[in-house]
Structures are given as C-alpha cells and as structure tokens.
Design a binder for these strands. Structure first.
Length: 576
RNA sequence: GGGAGAUUAGCUCAGCGGUUAGAGCAGAGCGCUCAUAACGCUUUGGUCCAGAGUUCGAAUCUCUGAUCUCCCA
C-alpha cells in the first residue's frame, strides 16, 4: 500500500440565513463528504472543513426580520445548520463560523499583508444612504422605477424586467427596499479595493500551471482574467456594523473606522480559520493546523481539494488565490477543484425564497439521510444540470437500496439463520464460481477506486451498485438453498462467503450510506472496516463460528402513497 | 449583447474519430423460491436536436441554426 496521503478538503460555505435545500447540499457539501469518507476509509489522513458564512446585509436583514440581534441570530442559525449537517452524516472535522475570533484575526492579518505588498488602494465612492434605516444601502436594496422600461420594482443594480443594468441613481422615485422610505441621499464614502488587476499575470501563470483542471474551470478563470479590461479591482470593505472590523493586522486603519470587510473577502479566509477553530476545539497547538495550511510548516505534501457549485468558481480560482498569493506568505493553494451544476426540482428550480423543493430539515423528517445521500450522489449534476423527481427518487431508491443491497443482506442472513444458526458456518471450500466472483470484484473495486480518486461521483455510484449486483448473481448461480439438500457442507462455504460479502459491502458503501454501513457492521458483530486491498483475504475476514444477528430491514421501500403525499406537500410554498 | 454547458432508447445517463451505439430503470418472456411480491437470465426499444462540411470512416471534429440551463456585462 502507498504511504498515507494527507488530504485537505473544503466545501463551499453555506450562507447563514436559512436552511439549505437539496440542490445546495449536492453541489458541494455532500460530494465533499463522500470524498472525505472514502479517503479516510483508504487510511489517508483527512482534514475536512466547512463553516457557515455569516456576514453581510442578508444576515442583518434576516436577523431583523426574526427580531433578534444579528450575532444571536447567527449563533442560533449556526447551531441549526450544524445539527442538520450532522444528521445528514456530513463528517466535517470542524464546522466553523466565519464570525469566529480566528477569522477576525486572520482576515485582518491578510489585509495588513496585502497593504504591505502595495495591493490595497483607497477609493472614494458615492453610495446611497437611507436616513430612515440609518445605514448605507447596497445597490440591490434600493428599489424604484426603471428609467428604461418603466417597471416599478427595478432594483438598484439591475431591472429584472428589461435586464438593463442600472446605477441606483438612475432609478425614478428610489426607495429603500428594507423600509420603503424615500428619505435617501447620496453620500461620499471611502473603501478599500484589492488590486486584483496588479496580480493578473501572477494569477494567469498559476492557472496555467494547473494542466489537469477541467476546461470548464480554467475557461471561466481565463475569461475573467482577459475579457475586456481584464481582471477588475474589487472593493473589500463595506459600511456595515456586522462583520470584521477593518484593521491592518492588529492595528487600526486610519480613515476606516466603523467599516467592516466585505463578506466575499472574509468568507474564503474562513477555510483557513476553521482549521484554527478545529485546533482550539481539540486542545491542539497552532502547529497542528498550520501543517495543513502553511507550506513552510508541513503542508507541502498536502493535497488540497475544493468542492463548490459552478457559480463559485471565479471566487475560488481568482479572488481567494489573489488574497493568498498577494500576502507573499507560503499558504497552501488549491490543487483540485471540483465544481457542480445545478439540481432542479420537478421541472423547475429549487427556490429558497419560494420554498419550492425539499429542504434539508424536511428531507430528514420523511426519510433517513442515507436515502437522500444515495439518490443525490448517484444523480449528482456533474456534466450538466440534473433533475429531482419523486418518481425517479422512489424508483432508484427502492431498486438500488431496498432490492439490490437490502434484500441481499436479508436473504443471506435469513437463510443462514434457518439452516446453520446465527453464526458463520464452517466447512466447504471455494471453487470456480467463487474464484470468478473474486476476480470480478477485484476488477470492479479497482474501477470504483479510480472513479473515487477522480471524484467521478456518478460513476463511483454505478460501480458500487454493480458490486452489489455481483453478490446477487453469485447467490443465484451458487444456489445454496438447493446445494444444501445434497451437500450441506458446500452450502456452508457458500453462505460463509455471502456473509463476508456483506462486510465487504459495508466497507465499500460507507462513503455513500454511512448509517446503513454502521448497522451492517453492528449486525455482523465486527469492527473490521479495513479496505479490501486483497479481495480473497477480505472475504475470509469473518471466520467460521463468528456470531452475527439478522439485521432489521435495512431500507424500507417508499410506497406510492408516500410518494404522492410528498409530491403534493413539496410542490411549492414551504409550509409556514 | 458576450461566454459556458446541455440536447443519445419511454425515463436518468455513459460513450467524445474506427466493427452491427451502451448501462440502469421502466416494458415483455423465462427461471428460481433463500429473500423487503425480492433475485437471476433473455429480450423489445434509438433518422445519437436539425442542416452543411472535413475524413477511407463522425454520436464523436468544423461551421450554421434550433431549444433548454447557467454565468458575465
């Protein structure tokens, strides 16, 4: 076996204002978890990090709507999201918060380093201030009549009716989208900009060095780098209360009093800060997290993989790298970047605002997480958008989980119990059929490993399913229920192999369906979760005489009645 | 307005220059009876969005167009 590899995995940070839907889940956190669990299963050292993204105007508004101080609101919502993530089996080593002290310090540190490197400029801007709200309003929180088409609810950044891009000052009868107040004025305010334009060549070279990235990813980055005037500088501060105070490291930043960093700047830095939070939570030293993130402190042999939705690619290929490279410090940069398309819901989009589709908490109310994990991962939107329909969900889950895998476990354990009792029977030797099975499994497991390592999620699922099917094919052709009548000893050997197949399946399936896998290990009375480097040896792991119990139904089927009920319930309008 | 992706069997998708285009599900037939009316075997089913071009040869490359989705302006 190869030396143990070290894998750093991050998934895009979910925003704090509400529970995410299944489309969000399958776009980053779930495949990241699959990859993390697989690598742990292979014996690699894994650091899997995620966090809630908590700053910005939407969080403030959501808190105000809930009638709570924003810090309290975020703290509560973080707990809610962390709890749901845990119940979905997302195996983060740490699930942090972008509002953590670690992220405050690190964000201010990066800003200071970028300033030292001459990559920060101060720009004076005119922004709309609402006297009634007592705050500056981001462009999209100003509403008015579109000067182009007359649409009355145009936003300050764009008219959704005629798609014309607008400046807030273009609007006729502008008003605050928050309070409706028309008592608005334009005020001068100063902001810091990150000079991404000055880093274009450096970023370009870095992208060029990633020859193994998908064209989809590099072409998006290249377009941003070279289109028009090239990569634009971006504001990294805002006039808000909720956020990370603008400082140069630990020192004040003259002229920036009362301002905070813009959420896009501090959010990706939380990937790193989350490792710091992990260290604190586990009583570790700084060196323990720095060996994942600082190439001068041990991270030079780390493989770093990011998971995200396609819309997040520019941030991860340009903005965040600009921060890291610009600091002049030896931070670990991403090695592989896996992005996903969108999952649609029954002929339309999942919609958080309209409550259309299934949200993570609702999903767990109606079925265990493994059902969702299996369907979502085996239908992950990798090459294009994919679609969730209840019919497809019911069919796939019933066939794959209940019939192919669940029933396999059931038939072999129950047959053994009735003929040999609840322990692994002894006697019998492997013949041609068994050798053929071992060969097929070896080939298929090899393919499964290659797909997993390439992060080909759907193909991995297909191969795993084929591995389950191989067990049914073997049983069918070996037919121990017939053999038993003439040659009980030979049947015993076949059953012993079948029971060992269950353990093998529990090991291989754990990344997809961890809870079911745990139940199988429990029923088999073993904690031997070693990856099958040698299939023949793995199929002898449970020796004759080893006691087991027949597990309860592993996956109950989804009935037509259930499907119809859920279909109606989730058609639109999250029950408020 | 610019860019990207998609369009292959009823459904969900592989295949991305080389024999008669594949898988799973659904449909049909047969077998088995250990099992969650489960499993196995066989099988029906396709102008590979349209048109033009390159090539000895195209689902696969090029161009044009259509439809859908997303991103950017």
């Amino acid at each position: 076996m190869d030396d143990m590899a070290r894998i750093l995995i991050t998934s895009a940070l979910p925003y704090i204002n509400g529970i995410k839907h299944l489309g969000n889940l399958v776009g980053s956190q779930l495949p990241a978890d699959l990859y993390a669990r697989y690598n742990r299963g292979r014996g690699n050292e894994v650091m899997f990090l995620c966090a809630t993204d908590e700053h910005g105007t939407p969080a403030e508004l959501a808190a105000a709507k809930a009638g709570k101080p924003v810090a309290d609101y975020c703290a509560e919502m973080h707990e809610v999201q962390a709890d749901i993530a845990k119940r979905f089996g997302l195996s983060f080593d740490h699930y942090g918060r972008s509002s953590s002290p670690q992220n405050h310090a690190l964000t201010q540190h990066f800003a200071g380093k970028l300033e030292e490197a001459g990559l920060i400029t101060e720009v004076s801007e005119k922004q709309v201030y609402s006297n009634a709200d007592g705050r500056f309003l981001p462009d999209r929180y100003i509403e008015g009549t579109c000067p182009n088409c007359g649409f009355e609810k145009a936003r300050g950044d764009q008219c959704e009716e005629c798609t014309k891009q607008l400046d807030p000052t273009d609007l006729i009868n502008p008003r605050s989208a928050i309070s409706g107040s028309t008592d608005l004025e334009v005020r001068e305010t100063k902001h810091l900009f990150l000079r991404q334009s000055a880093m274009r060549d450096q970023l370009d070279q870095w992208i060029d060095s990633k020859s193994d990235w998908p064209v989809l990813t590099t072409s998006i980055a290249k377009k941003w780098l070279h289109d028009g005037d090239g990569l634009q500088d971006r504001g990294i501060t805002r006039d808000l209360d909720w956020g990370i105070a603008v400082k140069k490291g630990t020192e004040d930043w003259p002229g920036m009093e009362g301002k905070v960093f813009y959420v896009w700047f501090d959010a990706p830095i939380e990937y790193i800060a989350a490792a710091g939070e992990w260290a604190e939570a586990h009583g570790k030293l700084d060196a323990d997290w720095e060996r994942w993130w600082r190439t001068d402190k041990g991270a030079d042999d780390v493989k770093y993989v990011q998971f995200m939705g396609k819309d997040n690619v520019p941030f991860h290929t340009l903005s965040f790298p600009a921060t890291l490279l610009g600091s002049g410090e030896p931070w670990k940069m991403v090695d592989h970047l896996k992005s996903f398309n969108y999952l649609n819901y029954d002929g339309g989009q999942f919609s958080t605002s309209q409550g259309r589709g299934v949200f993570m908490d609702q999903a767990l109310e109606i079925l265990p997480s493994d059902y969702w994990r299996w369907w979502l991962l085996s239908h992950a939107p990798e090459s294009s958008d994919s679609e969730f329909t209840w019919e497809n969900f019911q069919q796939s889950v019933n066939k794959d989980l209940a019939d192919v895998l669940g029933n396999f476990v059931s038939r072999i354990t129950k047959f053994c119990r009735s003929k040999f009792g609840e322990q692994v029977p002894e006697g019998g030797a492997w013949g041609e059929q068994e050798q053929a099975l071992i060969e097929e499994l070896s080939t298929r497991i090899g393919a499964y490993e290659r797909h997993m390592e390439a992060m080909e999620v759907r193909k991995s699922a297909q191969e795993l399913r084929a591995i389950w099917v191989a067990g049914n094919e073997y049983l069918q052709s070996a037919a121990p229920w017939s053999v038993f009548k003439e040659d009980p000893e030979r049947a015993a050997g076949q059953v012993r192999l079948g029971l060992n197949l269950i353990r093998l399946y529990a090991v291989l399936s754990a990344p997809f369906i961890p809870d079911a896998s745990d139940r199988l290990f429990e029923a088999l009375g073993t904690e031997d979760r070693d990856w099958p480097e040698d299939v023949a040896a793995a199929l002898a792991a449970l020796p004759a005489g080893h006691a087991f119990t027949v597990p309860e139904v592993l996956f109950a089927k989804i009935t037509d009645e259930q499907r119809e009920e859920w279909q109606a319930r989730f058609a639109g309008g999250r029950d408020a």
